[in-house]
Amino acid sequence: MERPLGLAVLILLGCFYLVALFADFISPYTPPDQSLQKTYHPPTALFWENGRLHVQRYELADPDDMVYRKIEGEGAPVRFFARGHDYRLMGLIPTDRHLFLVDEPDRIYLLGSDETGRDNFSRLLYGARISLSIGLVGIAIIMVFGFLAGGLAGYFGGIWDNLTMRFIELVMAVPGLYLLLVLRGTFPDELSPGQTFFLIVIILSFLAWGGTARIIRGMTLSLRNRQFVMAAEVLGQSPLKIVGKHILPNVFSYLVVAASLSIPAFILGEAALSFLGLGIQEPSASWGLMLSQAQDMKVFMLNFWWLLLPGAAIFVTVIAFNVLGDVFRDIVDPKQKFLNR
């Protein structure tokens, strides 16, 4: 893969992160905001009238099959930078301005609504926050644990090395998703959204740190016989200091890339757990959770492409991280001596 592709992917991901960061500004509604009169609503059409953008008004034509019909000529003006619900921009600045809104009781559903009339567009944007942050938090954790376990195992060798490696083998001997489910089953179902998020990150890190630890161990083993490490030993520096001061800078780029190669696993793992109802819980939004709504028969037959949107979002994000990981890998380890999969 060539570098221009890496740049393109970087720009794409940059846009994704911007959208996720400003999700509360861009999205007109909060994820739990229901509107029970407008369930399974199709995407609202937009039209120009008197020089202003209007959102089409609909009426429910058939409550059994949830068929909505346009009311010709009726619409509500779309207001830009309008006042809506309160939030903190980037978590800091309290405000209630939104990129676009319509006056209640009309609603703007760019991507339709779900079975309780919640806005799919808003939920998709909020869901992006979960998927885009989980990988970053996750690799921070596995970088720390992978480095400590791998570095110390490689540096000290002997029993510590043996124990660490056997433990990693043990974890790797169980098919990933089976272990993921068992671990999730260990914890109570009723958790706050924040707790759930961190629980998922920690479980997924537990599954993923082994690979990173192995790579770091291999590199440490080869580094520890190098002269500068021996010199430090002769000077009587403590092992922890040696590992931190001499080994870490030498393996750091590998550590980052090795860890970042597992970002897709975090995104997919969270999506899978949320999809199964064991991850992010309603009424919070997550791409996996949105996909599980799509299993609903009504959605299946009426509004199929809801199902596509969160799925496509996961797909594009994961593909981007896969490409990026490969590009970084090629830069750091062009011969794939340490990093391969």
């Binding site: 899978a272 996909l291 299993q295 199902l307 996961i314 797909f315 593909i319 896969n322």
Partner: peptide, 12 residues
């Protein structure tokens, strides 16, 4: 693409 598509999405 094949590497990045979640199985459950494909299953759906």
């Amino acid at each position: 693409a094949a590497l990045s598509i979640p199985e459950f999405f494909l299953a759906l």
